[in-house]
């Protein structure tokens, strides 16, 4: 079996191994910051940067890091890029920094990051390691955006702060509260499972 191409590495995280809808990882920011589409995209891109940069450095140092101290090294590297993102967001927009709150710092505890460093970046050259990590990051961003859109549209009657239904729309407040995150995530997981079921059935039908 041939090694996957760089493009396959990139696409892996976006669809086949989507961290939210397939692997169900990183649920803390998924449920907490997706009250609006802007917050969702910002958190997704921040995580993508940390993923890409930390996996690149882990891959570059993979031959120098002994197995016994690898977890400590990966965590220090991940924490470094989370700190970088934290400072960068403060410099870009204080409103965004306030909106994302403690969840920027909590990227360090996102299991997608250590998972990618340990399972992929530590075993692959820099280019595929980084592309796989960025693909995962975009897949994570896509998942957050899908949830954030639904919650903002139903919970505030807006998308990207633009009113969609006029002044008479009664917002579904529950959608911007924590239970709304669970409802919308469950809805999307059902859609993905149904699609997967349909695809499997079709493949089996073709083979028969």
């Amino acid at each position: 079996m041939s090694a996957p191409s760089n493009f396959d590495e990139f696409l892996d995280g976006i669809w086949k191994q989507n961290p939210i809808f397939v692997m169900v990882l990183g649920m803390c920011p998924t449920l907490a910051v997706t009250v609006s589409a802007v917050n969702a995209i910002s958190m997704g891109l921040a995580t993508t940067f940390v993923l890409g940069a930390s996996c690149l450095l882990v891959s570059l140092l993979r031959h120098s890091i002994p197995k016994q101290v690898r977890i400590a090294s990966y965590i220090v590297i991940i924490a470094t890029f989370v700190t970088v993102v934290d400072y960068a967001i403060q410099a870009i927009s204080l409103d965004l920094y306030e909106a994302l709150g403690a969840y920027i710092k909590l990227i360090v505890a996102n299991c997608i990051l250590l998972g990618r460093a340990e399972a992929h970046a530590a075993k692959n050259p820099p280019m595929p390691a980084m592309l796989n990590a960025i693909g995962m990051g975009f897949g994570f961003t896509l998942g957050l955006f899908a949830i954030g859109c639904v919650r903002e549209i139903l919970g505030a009657g807006k998308l990207f702060d633009i009113s969609l239904f006029g002044p008479h729309f009664q917002p579904w407040v529950v959608m911007v509260l924590p239970p709304g995150g669970f409802f919308v995530l469950a809805g999307w997981l059902i859609v993905f499972a149904a699609f997967d079921h349909y695809k499997t059935k079709r493949t089996l039908g073709v083979q028969a």
Binding site: L57, L61, S64, I65, P66, V69, A72, S73, V76, I77, A79, T80, F81, T83, V84
Partner: peptide, 14 residues
Amino acid sequence: RTLGLVSVICGIII
């Protein structure tokens, strides 16, 4: 040595 090297690189970046 490895942990020291990682710490130095990360410290400079931060």
